[in-house]
């Protein structure tokens, strides 16, 4: 019998995504099956156009599948409306972007506080959480700086704090080190490993960089919208 704990946090069955480009139908993801256990740090690799970002967007609830089943914690999320998906994302997902996507007019503190504005927490509770999140990524002393006053690595750490501040079970990261120097990239990966190991966060990361993928527990390769078998990937 499968216990709730054994059941994967994310289950994809026959996951397919089509979209129209002019008169053509493009299928970036085709009948994909994938289970991601709780607490796993998974890396998705593949060439451009292989469907890895499409898969990440589906798992993160940013996009909806055309066919197939997409379950999160035993609940089907593929059919949720745009509004319900937004609520679901706020509660379950932290997103880390390659280019950080911080709000330039807000300070690091305010950027990290943004997701908490949807939580109904009091101002004091929000302050505590934001300060803790920034301390965790080593930026407690930069909380009143705006993004233009931070380095790329610091901006990405603010973005990680923003993804983490609501304590979501799932973190998704799209090329999180793609725009960073080697040292900053290493510190970002170390943080992700720490969140997976210490806080049990499930992490799905898309990357081009094999060194980056090495930080993950498992790496899957995609090509033409399908997962490759381990030996094929090698």
């Amino acid at each position: 019998m499968t216990t709730s704990h054994d059941y994967p946090l994310i289950r994809c069955k026959g996951l397919t995504k089509h979209y129209r480009k002019g008169r053509q139908t493009v299928t970036p993801l085709s009948a994909l099956d994938l289970d991601v256990p709780r607490g796993e740090f998974l890396a998705l690799m593949g060439p451009s156009g292989s469907g890895k970002t499409t898969l990440l967007n589906l798992i993160a609830g940013i996009d909806r599948p055309s066919e197939g089943i997409l379950e999160f914690d035993r609940h089907e999320i593929g059919g949720l409306s745009r509004g319900r998906l937004a609520r679901w994302r706020a509660a379950h997902v932290g997103y880390i972007f390659q280019l950080y996507h911080l709000i330039p007019v807000l300070t690091a503190f305010e950027n990290v506080e943004i997701p908490l504005l949807l939580s109904g927490l009091s101002r004091r509770e929000r302050r505590e959480r934001v300060e803790n999140a920034l301390a965790l990524v080593g930026l407690a002393d930069r909380m009143h700086h705006v993004p233009s006053e931070l380095s790329g690595g610091q901006e990405q750490r603010v973005a990680i704090a923003r993804a983490l501040v609501t304590d979501p079970p799932l973190l998704v990261a799209d090329e999180p080190t793609g725009d960073l120097d080697r040292e900053s990239a290493a510190s970002v990966l170390a943080l992700l490993q720490q969140f997976s190991a210490e806080f049990g966060k499930t992490i799905v990361m898309v990357t081009h960089d094999p060194r980056c993928a090495d930080a993950a527990e498992r790496t899957l390769h995609l090509e033409k919208g399908k997962l490759l078998e381990a030996e094929e990937a090698l």
Binding site: A91, H101, I103
Partner: peptide
């Protein structure tokens, strides 16, 4: 546009 999309990704409704 990207910034507003980021806020939607975080969970803000349109």
């Amino acid at each position: 546009i990207r910034e507003i999309a980021t806020l939607q990704t975080i969970g803000f409704r349109p």
